[in-house]
């Protein structure tokens, strides 16, 4: 047990009081329209004095606030690799598509990662893949050449997404902290299950699934891919024999229930950190909880903007950490 994070964990405990509970989310859903939802968020301290009253501006500012807190705590950012890799690979994907297709306005970049958008674009333009981290180089080169020669955007996405999952899994395996290992394992397993479900719905081949799915400890990728070939019932049957049995029930219920279960599974993985006082666990859990909170608010705002009924929005809402 290390006392290195005592200050940081106590500070995070204070910050957790401002996280949205299920009751607060219910009140947000109960707001009459989109504008009232934004007003509710501003009253809760979301956004900032110079932030416009727009969903993306407010949510973007909230994402920035998470990392501002982490930087203030002076924690080595390497500890958060598993959380930042998806954004880093997103930048790679966006840069490759921008360079290969010359479509500049379609893609957005994340700038709060080790290789921000402009730098990533320059690396891809120069085709100097050696400037990328070792775990990105092969995937970047393969995806770039694939998109350039075949124009197959989906294959390009599959190559990069698979590399992102592999990177998350390996970062988790090398982490000293159990929460990072568990988070990486759950993230990759849930992503594999999502790939199987979507591949089954779109009738993808076994080769496609094997290329898209990343190996992990709690899911047998080969069996999952074969189950997906045999139909949704076969996927559910396979999941019942794993620790993701609840995913099978959600899958049987509805597609939105399954999507919600995928995120809830991650929150369940980090929930024990509420009772931990001395490791980095509660800090990582707080970051994931805040990201989950922002995602949930985005779903609600999107529902309100499209005038969906409250019950329909509620079905899509994720479980809260607090």
């Amino acid at each position: 047990m290390s006392e290195q994070y005592t200050y940081a964990v106590a500070r995070i405990r204070s910050l957790e009081t401002a996280l949205f509970s299920n009751a607060v989310i219910d009140r947000l859903i109960a707001c009459s329209d989109y504008e009232q939802c934004l007003q509710f968020l501003v009253e809760k301290g979301w956004g900032g004095a110079d932030i416009p009253m727009e969903a993306e501006a407010i949510l973007g500012r909230e994402e920035e606030k998470i990392w501002e807190v982490i930087k203030e705590l002076k924690i080595d950012m390497d500890k958060f690799d598993v959380l930042s890799y998806p954004k880093l690979f997103h930048n790679l994907k966006a840069a490759i598509k921008e360079v290969c297709t010359s479509e500049k306005s379609r893609h957005i970049f994340y700038d709060d990662v080790s290789i921000p958008g402009e730098e990533m674009r320059a690396i891809i333009q120069e085709k100097d893949f050696t400037k990328l981290p070792a775990f990105m180089q092969d995937a970047a080169k393969e995806a770039y050449e694939c998109l350039l020669h075949t124009g197959d955007g989906q294959l390009c996405d599959v190559i990069i997404d698979r590399a992102a999952l592999d990177a998350v899994y390996h970062a988790g395996q090398e982490a000293e902290d159990a929460i990072i290992r568990d988070y990486a394992e759950s993230t990759v397993a849930v992503a594999d299950i999502k790939i199987a479900v979507r591949s089954q719905r779109t009738a993808k081949s076994l080769e496609f699934m094997k290329r898209a799915m990343a190996e992990c400890g709690s899911v047998d990728v080969s069996r999952l891919a074969k189950a997906a070939l045999n139909g949704m019932d076969a996927i559910q049957e396979y999941l019942k024999d794993t620790v993701y049995a609840q995913g099978a029930e959600a899958l049987a219920e509805s597609p939105s229930s399954f999507e919600r279960w995928c995120d809830n599974r991650i929150i369940q993985t980090i929930s024990p950190q509420k009772y931990n006082a001395f490791t980095i666990g509660p800090i990582v859990a707080y970051v994931i909880a805040r990201q989950n909170e922002i995602k949930t608010v985005r779903i609600i705002l999107s529902g309100k903007l499209n005038e969906l009924p409250d019950d329909s929005i509620r079905e899509r809402v994720r479980e809260m950490y607090v």
């Binding site: 006392e3 005592t6 200050y7 940081a8 964990v9 106590a10 500070r11 995070i12 405990r13 204070s14 910050l15 006082a277």
Partner: peptide, 17 residues
């Protein structure tokens, strides 16, 4: 000392405690 670190963390966010 260790309790003081935790106390400082809480007071950083909420001096009323």
């Amino acid at each position: 000392g260790v309790a003081g670190q935790a106390a400082a963390g809480v007071v950083t966010e909420d001096p009323s405690k």
